[in-house]
Design a protein around this nucleic acid. Sequence first.
DNA 1: CAAAAAACATTCCCATCAGTATGTTTATAA
DNA 2: TTATAAACATACTGATGGGAATGTTTTTTG
Lengths: 210, 210
Amino acid sequence: MNVSDPELTARQKNNRQQIIQAAAVCFMKYGLEKATVDHMASELGSTKGRVYHHFASKDEIFFAVYRQAMQYCFDAVLPIVSRPLPAHTKLLAMAQAHSRVMMDTLPFQRSIRQGVNSYLHGPELGADREVLNQLIARRNEYEGLYRAVLQMGLEDGTLSVPDVAIAGRAIMGALNSLVDWYRVRPEQSQADRTQIADTLAKTIINGILP
Amino acid sequence: MNVSDPELTARQKNNRQQIIQAAAVCFMKYGLEKATVDHMASELGSTKGRVYHHFASKDEIFFAVYRQAMQYCFDAVLPIVSRPLPAHTKLLAMAQAHSRVMMDTLPFQRSIRQGVNSYLHGPELGADREVLNQLIARRNEYEGLYRAVLQMGLEDGTLSVPDVAIAGRAIMGALNSLVDWYRVRPEQSQADRTQIADTLAKTIINGILP
DNA sequence: CAAAAAACATTCCCATCAGTATGTTTATAA
DNA sequence: TTATAAACATACTGATGGGAATGTTTTTTG
């Protein structure tokens, strides 16, 4: 039953993936708590039975959505991190890539943005507590990539901030806010998203001074 | 029963205020959905009866928390808006003030940050829909203050952004993220908060370039 | 000081889901 | 081809919590 169990058949993995996708859509649509397992099943044109055949609980589904959301982020940004660029240029590229991911995987990103807090303050999480902590650690790891580049920028002189931790928070906050205000429009081309990502990243990194 | 009914006695207003405060704490502590009316009553050392004597529903309580949260923001920032300052300086002061409010009224700000989305996607809101729309409009009005200053900065040449709307979003996103990562520490003095507000505002407005 | 109303507390009801138990069908293996 | 298990659907259960109904106490008012 382990999620990363390599003994899952291709079909099983595909089924899980479908459910995770539907769950992300429902979490975005109704919010974490109001989204019911029946909603997800209905989104798939199925019933509860199918969902609970592949997942033990609603929590487990959310964690899968979380994991996937983080994976999208890492996949987009890690290649940039490993490129040999001056800190300032690298940070700009990272911010652009992150913005793109926010828009391209909106249901996932919105789900976890809204969901994590709820889970954190729940009275008892039992065994799931550890899983959640791992996922939070993974998010810290991700944000650490940005702090590292900021730190590098201080050293190579291409950046200047009073406090790396706070600057990192500010940057992530500005970038992640995208999932709150960005609205998907069907006629919107990929180029439009690139445009938004570009403008947002430039605004954050280059600043608003003349 | 109108909220802004001027015929409320001082005692009634005081009672409502106590409940609103307790509700904000519970919303922050448990999240919008998991916070029960019993929680709020318990926070007050009372029972449901008291809460439902002053409020018709849990939704109405949340809306009151929302309204109060916005009021805190306006009260802190409006005086600065009316001051005759160059756009750049004014924006910095607004950002500082906003950060302070986020920390000083954390339960309220955190409640609405987490709560609004849930309410937006609820299937049916009935008559409450209009109330919520008014509150959202009020938030837009508040963010409009920042966009106006940005626009002014473009005109007086003290600011430079590729897109006012996106810059406004970025700034609000960075500022509001404070409620996610700021942790209250009892020994933390007012000066410490001022320090954080100052650093955050400077980072956002002055940027991260040398 | 009575009577009425406000301010609660207590008790109850019922709709909503998460999760389970138990079918039924479809694919896989032998 | 048959047995076996995976992949579902259907039907049920139990707990939880919003809100109403009803009691009890405390103010306020006449």
